[in-house]
Amino acid sequence: MKTDFLKSLISTSGLSGFEAPVTELIQKKWDPLTDELSLSPLGSLHGIKRGSGKSHSLMIATHQDAIGLIISQIDGEFLHISNLGGIDIRVLPGQAVNVHADSGVLPGIICQPPAHLLPEDAATGAVALKHLLVDVGLSARQVARKIKIGDTISFATEPIEMSGGLLAGHSLDNRASVAALTLCLEELQSRQHVWDVQAIATAQEEVGAQGARTSAFALRPDLAIVVDVTFAKGPGASGWETFKLDSGPTIGWGATNHPFLHEEFKKLAEKLEMPFSVEILPSYSGTDGDDIQITAEGIPTIVISIPIRYMHTPVEVIATKDIQRTARLLTEFIVMLEDDFLEKIVWED
């Protein structure tokens, strides 16, 4: 797989609530691939690719935002930080970061003050976010001039190509899915499809699915597919919630997932002879899908996931082959949709 676009996706900032830079990148890429492109009031990107049929629509939602940090207080040369989304504080000390100031991007380090400068209870264990600081190497006067409370901070880890078709980097959650959806849009250029496709890069998933809820309400698709990442097997992760890297996408099962769509996706993957797993999501999926499903009068929804290792760290690892497989599964599903597909969805009582 050509990884240039994915690598630029994960090298561009776009934290929850501050997605603009990455949105712009996706916008450029999707512009020739879609018939209409617009931004929602909350910053979700809506790309519509028209089908040949009678205005049935399928939403494919991938969140574009990434977790990160925001400056909460400035103390001389040092910056105090707060979280945007679910940050794992254990991974923060010693990380390279970028501070996004009005004047431009400033590189920085997240520093963990030595134990004797911290309260006694912080001497062992992970140091709380309120005690971690960011150092940008500037004098207090320069900091005061250049940096303000409310400026965001993103990870600066560069993408790493590893052997065996693996790629490591931050924000693969969920830019990998954005990449899969982009691949799908590219494949659709040479394929006939009946249904309209709503390709959505949602905003603010990591802080409560704000983008997905509102985009689903605005667009009211007939069906929705949510593509997100899930847990890959790896060090410290081996239970039933985990899946092997490079073993294909997972198909969700559980209250968020419409059982009919689940069966259709399983049948399709088998027909394509594509490896896949069933992901058991007993009560919730923890994705945009939980909110899209209960939008307005309800939307039949399915969650498709790509396994990654080390979720919510700056070195998430993915098998690029799984991204291609996911894209193909999406494409073939879209192509398969006929005008009468909705009528086939019945509840087996």
């Binding site: 925001i70 979280n83 409370i149 809820r213 509102t214 985009s215």
Partner: peptide, 22 residues
């Protein structure tokens, strides 16, 4: 300028209505 870790206001509810609101 304020960055808060806790609390929430009516802004949350307004933001989520209909197609979303800045």
């Amino acid at each position: 300028r304020e960055v808060a870790n806790m609390g929430g206001t009516d802004a949350r509810a307004i933001q989520l209505t209909h197609a979303g609101v800045p």
